[in-house]
């Protein structure tokens, strides 16, 4: 760990030069990591942003930071957790929020299968996007990724009680915004 961090400080080699000299093996390793993990990241990012392109943008930003930190992440063994954490942090960051306001495209991102209530899905997503970014992140982690409160707190960098509060308030707000979800959220 400290070795990689030292490399980011004054070792006489600018970072871009380091990047340029990255081995083909490192690039291939990272590409394989992206192929394996980007689908699940994109799905969560779509729920967080409401838009395919914004989701790609969010995941790409997180992956870019993962790529920079690749050497100290012990490769793909823990890079997935790191990327997910960075993605959620970026989503709740005001730096990002000031550039991107969450919007929901009306288009369904895929063809509706038989028996699906697409209208309910859209209603739910509209309501989800009206939560604060922090509440939305807690809801997605708890109910989409099926993370425990402890895991969610760790990913979001906050206390377990904060996760509980955000989740409770988020669900309350969802009920108010979309009464048709009432039966699902009790």
């Amino acid at each position: 760990m400290s070795q990689a961090l030292e490399a980011r400080t004054r070792d006489g080699v600018p970072m871009t030069s380091q990047a340029r000299t990255a081995t083909a093996g490192r690039r291939a390793e990272f590409s394989a990591f992206v192929s394996a993990h980007s689908p699940s990241l994109l799905r969560a990012a779509f729920l967080l942003t409401g838009d395919q392109h914004l989701a790609e943008d969010l995941v790409q930003d997180a992956l870019a930071r993962t790529y920079r930190a690749w050497n100290r992440l012990d490769r793909a063994g823990n890079a997935a957790a790191y990327t997910r954490k960075v993605m959620y942090h970026l989503q709740v960051s005001w730096w990002r929020r000031r550039k991107v306001a969450e919007t929901l495209t009306d288009a369904v991102p895929h063809r509706a299968a038989r028996g699906r209530d697409v209208a309910l899905e859209v209603t739910m997503h509209h309501a989800l996007l009206k939560l604060t970014p922090a509440q939305r992140a807690a809801i997605v982690l708890r109910f989409f990724e099926d993370r425990t409160e402890v895991e969610t707190a760790r990913i979001l960098g906050c206390s377990q009680s904060t996760v509980k509060t955000r989740t409770r308030r988020g669900l309350e707000k969802l009920r108010g915004l979309a009464p048709e979800l009432e039966g699902m959220l009790s």
Binding site: F30, S38, A44, Q60, Y67, E121
Partner: peptide, 20 residues
């Protein structure tokens, strides 16, 4: 269901470029 079917995207190269 809402998230299913989000299109995959080729993100590795753009991420490496952005990371650099």
């Amino acid at each position: 269901r809402r998230a299913d079917g989000v299109k995959s995207a080729p993100l590795a190269e753009p991420a490496m470029t952005a990371g650099r």
